[in-house]
Simulated scan of single mutants.
Amino acid sequence: MPRLALVRRLEAAGFRAWPAASIQFDGSWQIRLTAGHPSKRLNSVNPLDPSDRRDIERRVEMAARRFEAYDRQLVFRQSPLAPKELDAYLDELGWERFEETAVMSAPMSELDIDGGMDHLPVRDVGRYVDASIRVHGRDPSLKAGLTEVLSSIKPPSGLFVIEDKGNPVSTALCVHDKELAGIYELATHAEARRKGRGRDVVCAALRWARHRGATKAWLQVETANEAAYGLYQGLGFKEVYRYSFRRSGEGQGAVSD
Results as ranks from 00 to 15, higher is better:
Arg134Lys: 14
Thr223Cys: 07
His189Lys: 09
Leu150Tyr: 09
Glu163Ile: 13
Glu239Arg: 03
Gly213Thr: 05
Gly236Lys: 05
Glu148Met: 08
Val240Thr: 04
Val240Arg: 05
Gly213Ile: 14
Arg138His: 14
Val149Leu: 15
Lys154Asp: 13
Arg207Ala: 10
Phe160Thr: 02
Ser151Pro: 00
His189Thr: 06
Pro156Thr: 11
His136Phe: 15
Val202Asn: 00
Thr188Asp: 04
Val135Asp: 01
Val169His: 03
Ala228Arg: 00
Asn167Pro: 00
Pro155Tyr: 12
Tyr243Val: 10
Lys143Leu: 11
Gly182Ile: 00
Cys174Tyr: 01
Lys216Tyr: 07
Val149Asn: 01
Glu226Pro: 00
Glu148Leu: 10
Ile133Glu: 09
Val149Gly: 05
Gly236Glu: 12
Arg212Leu: 15
Asp139Phe: 08
Cys203Ser: 12
Leu235Lys: 05
Arg199Asp: 06
Asp164Cys: 08
Thr223Tyr: 03
Tyr229Val: 11
Gly166Ile: 01
Tyr229Glu: 12
Tyr184Ser: 03
Leu173Val: 13
Thr147Glu: 13
Ala187Gln: 01
Ser141Thr: 12
Trp208Leu: 06
His189Gly: 11
Arg193Tyr: 11
Leu180Asp: 13
His176Gln: 06
Leu219Arg: 11
Tyr243Glu: 12
Leu146Ile: 09
His211Asp: 14
Glu185Asn: 13
Phe245Arg: 01
Asp164Leu: 09
Ser170Trp: 08
Tyr243Ser: 11
Trp218Pro: 00
Arg194Ala: 10
Ala204Arg: 09
Leu159Ser: 09
Arg134Ala: 14
Gly137Met: 12
Val161His: 07
Val161Gln: 04
Arg246His: 13
Gly230Asn: 13
Gly158Leu: 03
Asp164Asn: 10
Glu222His: 09
Ala172Gly: 06
Asp139His: 12
Ile133His: 02
Trp208Gly: 01
Gly196Pro: 00
Lys178Tyr: 11
Leu142Ile: 08
